[in-house]
Design a protein around this nucleic acid. Structure first.
Lengths: 223, 223
DNA sequence: GGACGATCAACTATCGATAATTGATACTTG
DNA sequence: CAAGTATCAATTATCGATAGTTGATCGTCC
Protein backbone atom coordinates (compact mmCIF):
# COMPACT_ATOMS: atom_id res chain seq x y z
CA UNK A 1 0.00 0.00 0.00
CA UNK A 2 2.65 2.51 0.99
CA UNK A 3 5.43 3.38 -1.42
CA UNK A 4 8.75 3.03 0.33
CA UNK A 5 10.57 4.44 -2.69
CA UNK A 6 8.76 7.74 -2.87
CA UNK A 7 11.30 9.83 -1.08
CA UNK A 8 9.52 12.97 -0.17
CA UNK A 9 5.87 12.18 -0.52
CA UNK A 10 5.49 13.11 3.11
CA UNK A 11 5.44 16.64 4.31
CA UNK A 12 8.34 17.75 6.47
CA UNK A 13 5.91 18.12 9.32
CA UNK A 14 4.78 14.52 8.93
CA UNK A 15 8.32 13.23 8.86
CA UNK A 16 9.17 15.15 11.99
CA UNK A 17 6.01 13.86 13.62
CA UNK A 18 6.97 10.27 12.90
CA UNK A 19 10.42 10.68 14.35
CA UNK A 20 9.10 12.34 17.46
CA UNK A 21 6.55 9.59 17.95
CA UNK A 22 9.29 7.01 18.03
CA UNK A 23 11.35 9.06 20.45
CA UNK A 24 8.45 9.63 22.79
CA UNK A 25 7.08 6.15 22.97
CA UNK A 26 10.49 4.59 23.19
CA UNK A 27 11.23 6.85 26.11
CA UNK A 28 14.16 8.59 24.44
CA UNK A 29 12.24 11.74 25.19
CA UNK A 30 10.87 11.21 28.70
CA UNK A 31 7.40 12.20 29.93
CA UNK A 32 7.16 15.74 31.17
CA UNK A 33 9.97 16.86 28.91
CA UNK A 34 9.47 20.15 27.25
CA UNK A 35 9.64 20.23 23.49
CA UNK A 36 11.15 23.51 22.40
CA UNK A 37 10.18 24.37 18.88
CA UNK A 38 13.34 26.21 17.94
CA UNK A 39 15.57 23.46 19.26
CA UNK A 40 13.67 20.81 17.36
CA UNK A 41 13.84 22.93 14.24
CA UNK A 42 17.60 23.11 14.64
CA UNK A 43 17.83 19.40 15.28
CA UNK A 44 15.87 18.50 12.16
CA UNK A 45 17.38 21.24 10.06
CA UNK A 46 14.11 22.92 9.23
CA UNK A 47 12.37 26.08 10.24
CA UNK A 48 9.91 26.37 13.06
CA UNK A 49 6.81 25.97 10.90
CA UNK A 50 6.98 22.24 10.13
CA UNK A 51 7.85 21.57 13.75
CA UNK A 52 4.70 23.31 14.86
CA UNK A 53 2.66 21.25 12.45
CA UNK A 54 4.17 18.10 13.87
CA UNK A 55 3.44 19.18 17.42
CA UNK A 56 -0.17 19.87 16.51
CA UNK A 57 -0.53 16.36 15.21
CA UNK A 58 1.12 14.90 18.25
CA UNK A 59 -1.37 16.80 20.31
CA UNK A 60 -4.24 15.33 18.34
CA UNK A 61 -2.67 11.94 19.01
CA UNK A 62 -2.63 12.85 22.68
CA UNK A 63 1.07 12.21 23.00
CA UNK A 64 1.86 15.77 24.00
CA UNK A 65 0.04 18.60 25.66
CA UNK A 66 0.27 22.19 24.54
CA UNK A 67 -0.59 25.18 26.65
CA UNK A 68 -0.86 28.33 24.56
CA UNK A 69 2.19 30.50 24.87
CA UNK A 70 3.62 28.17 27.46
CA UNK A 71 5.02 25.37 25.44
CA UNK A 72 4.52 21.74 24.53
CA UNK A 73 5.21 18.88 26.93
CA UNK A 74 5.33 15.13 26.58
CA UNK A 75 2.37 13.61 28.37
CA UNK A 76 2.85 11.35 31.30
CA UNK A 77 0.27 8.89 30.23
CA UNK A 78 1.55 7.86 26.89
CA UNK A 79 1.60 4.27 27.98
CA UNK A 80 -1.94 4.55 29.18
CA UNK A 81 -3.00 6.07 25.91
CA UNK A 82 -1.30 3.24 24.12
CA UNK A 83 -3.14 0.76 26.28
CA UNK A 84 -6.39 2.62 25.75
CA UNK A 85 -5.93 2.57 22.04
CA UNK A 86 -5.76 -1.19 22.01
CA UNK A 87 -9.10 -1.43 23.74
CA UNK A 88 -10.71 0.89 21.23
CA UNK A 89 -9.08 -1.00 18.38
CA UNK A 90 -10.49 -4.19 19.82
CA UNK A 91 -13.97 -2.72 19.81
CA UNK A 92 -13.75 -1.56 16.24
CA UNK A 93 -12.05 -4.63 14.86
CA UNK A 94 -14.41 -7.01 16.55
CA UNK A 95 -17.28 -5.15 14.99
CA UNK A 96 -15.63 -5.11 11.57
CA UNK A 97 -15.14 -8.84 11.88
CA UNK A 98 -18.78 -9.30 12.69
CA UNK A 99 -19.91 -7.13 9.80
CA UNK A 100 -17.61 -8.79 7.31
CA UNK A 101 -18.52 -12.29 8.32
CA UNK A 102 -22.24 -11.56 8.33
CA UNK A 103 -21.94 -10.05 4.88
CA UNK A 104 -19.60 -12.78 3.68
CA UNK A 105 -17.04 -10.22 2.57
CA UNK A 106 -14.08 -11.30 4.62
CA UNK A 107 -11.07 -11.24 2.28
CA UNK A 108 -9.56 -14.56 3.30
CA UNK A 109 -7.11 -14.70 0.43
CA UNK A 110 -5.60 -11.33 1.24
CA UNK A 111 -5.40 -12.17 4.91
CA UNK A 112 -3.58 -15.42 4.20
CA UNK A 113 -1.20 -13.64 1.89
CA UNK A 114 -0.50 -10.96 4.47
CA UNK A 115 0.30 -13.54 7.11
CA UNK A 116 2.68 -15.22 4.69
CA UNK A 117 4.39 -11.92 4.05
CA UNK A 118 4.61 -11.30 7.74
CA UNK A 119 6.11 -14.69 8.36
CA UNK A 120 8.89 -14.21 5.86
CA UNK A 121 9.57 -10.75 7.23
CA UNK A 122 9.89 -12.24 10.69
CA UNK A 123 12.39 -14.79 9.36
CA UNK A 124 14.50 -11.92 8.08
CA UNK A 125 14.09 -10.20 11.44
CA UNK A 126 12.67 -7.19 9.65
CA UNK A 127 10.69 -5.48 12.41
CA UNK A 128 9.51 -2.75 10.15
CA UNK A 129 8.06 -5.11 7.58
CA UNK A 130 6.35 -7.17 10.26
CA UNK A 131 4.73 -4.06 11.69
CA UNK A 132 3.61 -3.02 8.23
CA UNK A 133 2.12 -6.43 7.56
CA UNK A 134 0.29 -6.35 10.86
CA UNK A 135 -1.27 -3.02 10.03
CA UNK A 136 -2.22 -4.31 6.60
CA UNK A 137 -3.83 -7.38 8.12
CA UNK A 138 -6.02 -5.40 10.45
CA UNK A 139 -6.83 -2.78 7.86
CA UNK A 140 -8.08 -5.51 5.55
CA UNK A 141 -10.51 -6.57 8.21
CA UNK A 142 -11.63 -3.04 8.94
CA UNK A 143 -12.22 -2.34 5.29
CA UNK A 144 -14.13 -5.56 4.85
CA UNK A 145 -16.66 -4.20 7.30
CA UNK A 146 -17.73 -1.67 4.67
CA UNK A 147 -18.53 0.98 7.19
CA UNK A 148 -16.88 4.25 6.38
CA UNK A 149 -17.36 5.75 9.80
CA UNK A 150 -15.91 2.69 11.43
CA UNK A 151 -12.90 2.90 9.16
CA UNK A 152 -12.42 6.58 9.86
CA UNK A 153 -12.59 6.03 13.59
CA UNK A 154 -10.00 3.31 13.25
CA UNK A 155 -7.67 5.39 11.14
CA UNK A 156 -8.03 8.22 13.61
CA UNK A 157 -6.24 6.07 16.16
CA UNK A 158 -3.13 6.42 14.01
CA UNK A 159 -2.56 2.73 13.90
CA UNK A 160 0.61 2.86 11.84
CA UNK A 161 2.49 5.03 14.22
CA UNK A 162 1.36 3.16 17.29
CA UNK A 163 2.04 -0.26 15.90
CA UNK A 164 5.55 0.51 14.73
CA UNK A 165 6.27 2.20 17.98
CA UNK A 166 4.89 -0.53 20.16
CA UNK A 167 6.97 -3.13 18.47
CA UNK A 168 10.11 -1.12 18.93
CA UNK A 169 9.34 -0.19 22.49
CA UNK A 170 7.99 -3.53 23.55
CA UNK A 171 10.66 -5.68 22.05
CA UNK A 172 7.89 -8.02 21.08
CA UNK A 173 9.03 -11.35 19.73
CA UNK A 174 8.36 -11.32 16.03
CA UNK A 175 7.62 -15.01 16.07
CA UNK A 176 4.85 -14.41 18.59
CA UNK A 177 3.34 -11.70 16.46
CA UNK A 178 3.18 -14.04 13.51
CA UNK A 179 1.72 -16.79 15.63
CA UNK A 180 -0.98 -14.49 17.01
CA UNK A 181 -2.04 -13.37 13.58
CA UNK A 182 -2.06 -16.88 12.23
CA UNK A 183 -4.27 -17.93 15.11
CA UNK A 184 -6.64 -15.05 14.49
CA UNK A 185 -6.79 -15.96 10.83
CA UNK A 186 -7.59 -19.54 11.72
CA UNK A 187 -10.42 -18.41 13.95
CA UNK A 188 -11.84 -16.36 11.11
CA UNK A 189 -11.45 -19.21 8.67
CA UNK A 190 -13.35 -21.49 11.02
CA UNK A 191 -16.45 -19.60 9.99
CA UNK A 192 -17.82 -19.45 13.49
CA UNK A 193 -18.99 -15.91 14.02
CA UNK A 194 -18.73 -15.63 17.77
CA UNK A 195 -15.41 -17.43 17.94
CA UNK A 196 -13.91 -15.11 15.38
CA UNK A 197 -15.27 -12.01 17.07
CA UNK A 198 -14.01 -13.02 20.46
CA UNK A 199 -10.64 -13.80 18.99
CA UNK A 200 -10.49 -10.44 17.25
CA UNK A 201 -11.18 -8.76 20.54
CA UNK A 202 -8.78 -10.80 22.62
CA UNK A 203 -6.05 -10.29 20.06
CA UNK A 204 -5.98 -6.60 20.97
CA UNK A 205 -6.86 -6.81 24.63
CA UNK A 206 -3.82 -8.98 25.01
CA UNK A 207 -1.59 -6.03 24.14
CA UNK A 208 -3.56 -3.70 26.38
CA UNK A 209 -3.02 -6.08 29.26
CA UNK A 210 0.72 -6.29 28.91
CA UNK A 211 2.34 -4.44 31.78
CA UNK A 212 3.90 -1.14 30.84
CA UNK A 213 6.22 0.99 32.85
CA UNK A 214 6.12 4.73 33.02
CA UNK A 215 8.00 5.07 29.79
CA UNK A 216 5.63 2.93 27.83
CA UNK A 217 8.20 0.21 27.49
CA UNK A 218 6.90 -3.23 28.12
CA UNK A 219 8.36 -5.04 31.04
CA UNK A 220 9.63 -8.51 30.38
CA UNK A 221 6.93 -10.92 31.37
CA UNK A 222 7.68 -13.00 34.43
CA UNK A 223 8.24 -16.42 32.95
CA UNK B 1 -13.97 26.89 34.96
CA UNK B 2 -13.52 29.08 31.92
CA UNK B 3 -13.01 32.80 32.18
CA UNK B 4 -15.48 34.49 29.90
CA UNK B 5 -13.97 37.87 30.57
CA UNK B 6 -10.49 37.08 29.32
CA UNK B 7 -10.49 38.94 26.06
CA UNK B 8 -7.83 37.39 23.93
CA UNK B 9 -6.71 34.33 25.76
CA UNK B 10 -7.18 32.32 22.60
CA UNK B 11 -4.59 32.30 19.88
CA UNK B 12 -5.55 33.61 16.49
CA UNK B 13 -5.56 30.08 15.16
CA UNK B 14 -8.10 29.01 17.77
CA UNK B 15 -10.33 31.96 17.08
CA UNK B 16 -10.27 31.25 13.38
CA UNK B 17 -10.99 27.61 14.06
CA UNK B 18 -14.06 28.48 16.09
CA UNK B 19 -15.43 30.76 13.44
CA UNK B 20 -14.92 28.17 10.74
CA UNK B 21 -16.65 25.53 12.82
CA UNK B 22 -19.73 27.72 13.05
CA UNK B 23 -19.68 28.35 9.33
CA UNK B 24 -19.32 24.71 8.48
CA UNK B 25 -21.90 23.35 10.88
CA UNK B 26 -24.42 26.01 9.93
CA UNK B 27 -23.86 25.22 6.29
CA UNK B 28 -22.65 28.70 5.42
CA UNK B 29 -19.66 26.93 3.98
CA UNK B 30 -21.13 23.95 2.13
CA UNK B 31 -19.65 20.44 2.05
CA UNK B 32 -17.09 19.93 -0.66
CA UNK B 33 -16.12 23.58 -0.61
CA UNK B 34 -12.45 24.26 -0.87
CA UNK B 35 -10.86 26.29 1.88
CA UNK B 36 -8.08 28.39 0.41
CA UNK B 37 -5.56 29.39 3.01
CA UNK B 38 -4.63 32.72 1.53
CA UNK B 39 -8.24 33.77 1.05
CA UNK B 40 -9.12 32.88 4.61
CA UNK B 41 -6.07 34.77 5.79
CA UNK B 42 -7.29 37.81 3.92
CA UNK B 43 -10.81 37.40 5.26
CA UNK B 44 -9.65 37.22 8.86
CA UNK B 45 -6.94 39.78 8.42
CA UNK B 46 -4.08 37.51 9.49
CA UNK B 47 -1.27 35.76 7.76
CA UNK B 48 -1.37 32.22 6.46
CA UNK B 49 0.17 30.66 9.55
CA UNK B 50 -2.75 30.90 11.99
CA UNK B 51 -5.10 29.76 9.25
CA UNK B 52 -3.06 26.63 8.75
CA UNK B 53 -3.15 25.92 12.45
CA UNK B 54 -6.91 26.25 12.40
CA UNK B 55 -7.23 23.94 9.43
CA UNK B 56 -5.08 21.34 11.14
CA UNK B 57 -7.41 21.35 14.09
CA UNK B 58 -10.46 21.12 11.91
CA UNK B 59 -8.87 18.13 10.28
CA UNK B 60 -8.37 16.49 13.63
CA UNK B 61 -12.04 17.22 14.32
CA UNK B 62 -12.88 15.52 11.03
CA UNK B 63 -14.69 18.52 9.69
CA UNK B 64 -12.34 18.99 6.79
CA UNK B 65 -10.04 16.83 4.75
CA UNK B 66 -6.57 17.89 3.67
CA UNK B 67 -4.63 16.33 0.85
CA UNK B 68 -1.00 17.38 0.97
CA UNK B 69 -0.23 20.04 -1.59
CA UNK B 70 -3.75 19.81 -2.93
CA UNK B 71 -5.78 21.76 -0.49
CA UNK B 72 -8.35 21.50 2.26
CA UNK B 73 -12.00 20.68 1.68
CA UNK B 74 -15.10 20.61 3.84
CA UNK B 75 -16.20 17.04 4.34
CA UNK B 76 -19.53 15.64 3.39
CA UNK B 77 -20.38 14.20 6.74
CA UNK B 78 -23.70 13.44 5.24
CA UNK B 79 -21.96 10.44 3.79
CA UNK B 80 -21.46 9.18 7.28
CA UNK B 81 -24.89 7.69 7.52
CA UNK B 82 -26.85 7.28 10.67
CA UNK B 83 -26.76 3.56 10.22
CA UNK B 84 -23.00 3.57 10.26
CA UNK B 85 -22.86 5.65 13.37
CA UNK B 86 -25.08 3.25 15.26
CA UNK B 87 -22.79 0.37 14.50
CA UNK B 88 -19.78 2.29 15.75
CA UNK B 89 -21.69 3.39 18.83
CA UNK B 90 -22.56 -0.20 19.47
CA UNK B 91 -18.90 -1.18 19.33
CA UNK B 92 -17.83 1.52 21.73
CA UNK B 93 -20.71 1.15 24.15
CA UNK B 94 -20.41 -2.59 24.33
CA UNK B 95 -16.77 -2.17 25.21
CA UNK B 96 -17.49 0.50 27.78
CA UNK B 97 -20.03 -1.82 29.33
CA UNK B 98 -17.48 -4.57 29.50
CA UNK B 99 -14.84 -2.33 31.02
CA UNK B 100 -17.20 -0.85 33.59
CA UNK B 101 -18.59 -4.18 34.67
CA UNK B 102 -15.18 -5.78 34.91
CA UNK B 103 -13.98 -2.88 37.02
CA UNK B 104 -17.18 -2.73 39.01
CA UNK B 105 -17.63 0.93 38.23
CA UNK B 106 -21.00 0.85 36.55
CA UNK B 107 -23.02 3.75 37.98
CA UNK B 108 -26.25 1.88 38.56
CA UNK B 109 -27.83 4.62 40.63
CA UNK B 110 -27.34 7.25 37.96
CA UNK B 111 -28.60 4.95 35.27
CA UNK B 112 -31.76 4.18 37.21
CA UNK B 113 -32.32 7.83 37.83
CA UNK B 114 -31.85 8.67 34.17
CA UNK B 115 -34.38 6.07 33.14
CA UNK B 116 -36.83 7.52 35.62
CA UNK B 117 -36.30 10.96 34.17
CA UNK B 118 -36.77 9.59 30.70
CA UNK B 119 -39.98 7.86 31.67
CA UNK B 120 -41.56 10.99 33.04
CA UNK B 121 -40.44 12.94 29.99
CA UNK B 122 -42.10 10.35 27.81
CA UNK B 123 -45.31 10.73 29.79
CA UNK B 124 -45.24 14.46 29.03
CA UNK B 125 -44.54 13.61 25.37
CA UNK B 126 -41.41 15.71 25.58
CA UNK B 127 -39.30 14.32 22.72
CA UNK B 128 -36.44 16.62 23.42
CA UNK B 129 -36.14 15.63 27.05
CA UNK B 130 -36.32 11.95 26.15
CA UNK B 131 -33.51 12.36 23.63
CA UNK B 132 -31.46 14.22 26.18
CA UNK B 133 -32.00 11.52 28.77
CA UNK B 134 -31.02 8.87 26.29
CA UNK B 135 -27.76 10.61 25.53
CA UNK B 136 -27.12 11.01 29.25
CA UNK B 137 -27.77 7.33 29.82
CA UNK B 138 -25.27 6.22 27.22
CA UNK B 139 -22.72 8.82 28.19
CA UNK B 140 -22.81 7.51 31.77
CA UNK B 141 -21.88 4.11 30.50
CA UNK B 142 -19.12 5.43 28.26
CA UNK B 143 -17.63 7.41 31.10
CA UNK B 144 -17.80 4.46 33.44
CA UNK B 145 -15.40 2.67 31.12
CA UNK B 146 -12.68 5.07 32.23
CA UNK B 147 -10.99 5.08 28.88
CA UNK B 148 -10.33 8.56 27.63
CA UNK B 149 -9.68 7.52 24.07
CA UNK B 150 -12.88 5.53 23.99
CA UNK B 151 -14.79 8.50 25.29
CA UNK B 152 -13.25 10.83 22.74
CA UNK B 153 -14.08 8.46 19.91
CA UNK B 154 -17.64 8.30 21.13
CA UNK B 155 -18.02 12.05 21.46
CA UNK B 156 -16.58 12.43 17.98
CA UNK B 157 -19.69 10.72 16.65
CA UNK B 158 -21.68 13.74 17.75
CA UNK B 159 -24.21 11.65 19.54
CA UNK B 160 -26.47 14.52 20.56
CA UNK B 161 -27.16 15.68 17.08
CA UNK B 162 -27.73 12.22 15.74
CA UNK B 163 -30.01 11.11 18.52
CA UNK B 164 -32.29 14.09 18.14
CA UNK B 165 -32.38 13.64 14.39
CA UNK B 166 -33.20 9.99 14.61
CA UNK B 167 -36.06 10.45 16.98
CA UNK B 168 -37.63 13.09 14.82
CA UNK B 169 -37.01 11.27 11.58
CA UNK B 170 -37.97 7.85 12.78
CA UNK B 171 -41.05 8.89 14.67
CA UNK B 172 -39.93 6.46 17.26
CA UNK B 173 -42.48 5.74 19.92
CA UNK B 174 -41.27 7.36 23.10
CA UNK B 175 -42.71 4.52 25.10
CA UNK B 176 -40.55 2.09 23.16
CA UNK B 177 -37.45 4.14 23.80
CA UNK B 178 -38.10 4.05 27.51
CA UNK B 179 -38.79 0.35 27.39
CA UNK B 180 -35.56 -0.33 25.51
CA UNK B 181 -33.49 1.58 27.98
CA UNK B 182 -35.18 -0.04 30.93
CA UNK B 183 -34.46 -3.43 29.42
CA UNK B 184 -30.82 -2.53 28.86
CA UNK B 185 -30.57 -1.34 32.43
CA UNK B 186 -32.06 -4.58 33.65
CA UNK B 187 -29.51 -6.54 31.67
CA UNK B 188 -26.74 -4.55 33.27
CA UNK B 189 -28.23 -4.95 36.72
CA UNK B 190 -28.36 -8.68 36.22
CA UNK B 191 -24.61 -8.66 36.64
CA UNK B 192 -24.05 -11.11 33.84
CA UNK B 193 -21.21 -9.69 31.78
CA UNK B 194 -21.92 -11.28 28.43
CA UNK B 195 -25.64 -10.71 28.63
CA UNK B 196 -25.13 -7.04 29.37
CA UNK B 197 -22.59 -6.62 26.59
CA UNK B 198 -24.74 -8.31 24.02
CA UNK B 199 -27.68 -6.20 25.08
CA UNK B 200 -25.61 -3.02 24.82
CA UNK B 201 -24.69 -3.98 21.30
CA UNK B 202 -28.14 -5.06 20.18
CA UNK B 203 -29.65 -1.91 21.62
CA UNK B 204 -27.77 0.09 18.97
CA UNK B 205 -27.82 -2.39 16.13
CA UNK B 206 -31.55 -2.32 16.38
CA UNK B 207 -31.56 1.30 15.24
CA UNK B 208 -29.03 0.55 12.53
CA UNK B 209 -31.39 -2.05 11.17
CA UNK B 210 -34.19 0.42 10.65
CA UNK B 211 -34.42 1.23 6.95
CA UNK B 212 -32.41 4.26 5.90
CA UNK B 213 -31.93 5.91 2.60
CA UNK B 214 -28.60 6.95 1.16
CA UNK B 215 -28.60 10.18 3.08
CA UNK B 216 -28.97 8.55 6.43
CA UNK B 217 -32.49 9.85 6.87
CA UNK B 218 -34.98 7.31 8.01
CA UNK B 219 -37.67 6.32 5.55
CA UNK B 220 -41.19 6.19 6.80
CA UNK B 221 -41.98 2.58 7.57
CA UNK B 222 -44.22 0.97 4.99
CA UNK B 223 -46.28 -0.17 7.91
C1' DG C 1 -9.71 15.80 -34.30
C1' DG C 2 -7.28 14.36 -30.50
C1' DA C 3 -3.16 12.94 -27.76
C1' DC C 4 0.87 15.37 -25.95
C1' DG C 5 3.64 18.66 -23.89
C1' DA C 6 4.88 23.55 -22.83
C1' DT C 7 3.16 27.34 -20.17
C1' DC C 8 0.61 29.61 -16.55
C1' DA C 9 -1.87 30.97 -12.57
C1' DA C 10 -3.19 29.58 -8.15
C1' DC C 11 -1.92 27.61 -4.06
C1' DT C 12 0.50 25.15 -0.50
C1' DA C 13 4.72 24.20 2.11
C1' DT C 14 8.50 26.27 4.05
C1' DC C 15 11.63 29.79 5.41
C1' DG C 16 13.82 33.59 8.08
C1' DA C 17 12.69 37.54 10.81
C1' DT C 18 9.93 40.01 14.23
C1' DA C 19 6.49 40.96 17.81
C1' DA C 20 4.66 39.43 22.15
C1' DT C 21 4.37 36.71 26.11
C1' DT C 22 6.12 34.11 29.99
C1' DG C 23 8.74 32.76 34.06
C1' DA C 24 12.69 33.84 36.58
C1' DT C 25 15.74 37.00 38.73
C1' DA C 26 17.50 41.05 40.54
C1' DC C 27 16.23 45.27 42.66
C1' DT C 28 13.39 48.45 45.65
C1' DT C 29 11.02 49.92 49.38
C1' DG C 30 9.00 50.29 53.76
C1' DC D 1 12.96 40.55 55.29
C1' DA D 2 8.31 40.23 52.84
C1' DA D 3 5.94 42.12 49.05
C1' DG D 4 6.01 44.19 44.92
C1' DT D 5 8.13 45.74 40.58
C1' DA D 6 11.32 46.34 36.81
C1' DT D 7 14.11 43.76 33.76
C1' DC D 8 15.96 39.93 31.10
C1' DA D 9 16.47 35.78 28.48
C1' DA D 10 13.99 32.26 26.39
C1' DT D 11 10.42 30.84 23.68
C1' DT D 12 6.00 30.98 21.24
C1' DA D 13 2.86 33.22 17.92
C1' DT D 14 2.67 35.62 13.83
C1' DC D 15 4.21 37.81 9.76
C1' DG D 16 5.71 38.61 4.88
C1' DA D 17 8.23 36.52 1.22
C1' DT D 18 9.69 32.61 -1.65
C1' DA D 19 10.22 27.98 -3.51
C1' DG D 20 7.78 24.18 -5.47
C1' DT D 21 3.47 21.68 -6.78
C1' DT D 22 -0.73 20.97 -9.05
C1' DG D 23 -4.40 21.28 -12.36
C1' DA D 24 -5.80 23.74 -16.28
C1' DT D 25 -5.18 26.03 -20.67
C1' DC D 26 -3.63 26.36 -25.11
C1' DG D 27 -1.13 25.47 -29.07
C1' DT D 28 1.15 21.85 -31.96
C1' DC D 29 1.91 17.89 -34.54
C1' DC D 30 0.46 13.64 -36.53
Amino acid sequence: MTEPSQVTRLTLGQQIRDMLVVDIVSGAIPPGERLVETKLAARFGTSQAPVREALRELEAMRMVETRPRRGTFVRHFVQQTLRESYVVRAALEETATRLAMLAGTMPLAELRETVTTMRSAARRNDDDAVAKASVAFHRHIIEAGHNELLRLSWEALQIEARTAVTMVAAEVKLKDVVRDHAALLAAIESGNLETACRHARDHQWHYADLPHDAHGRLRPQAS
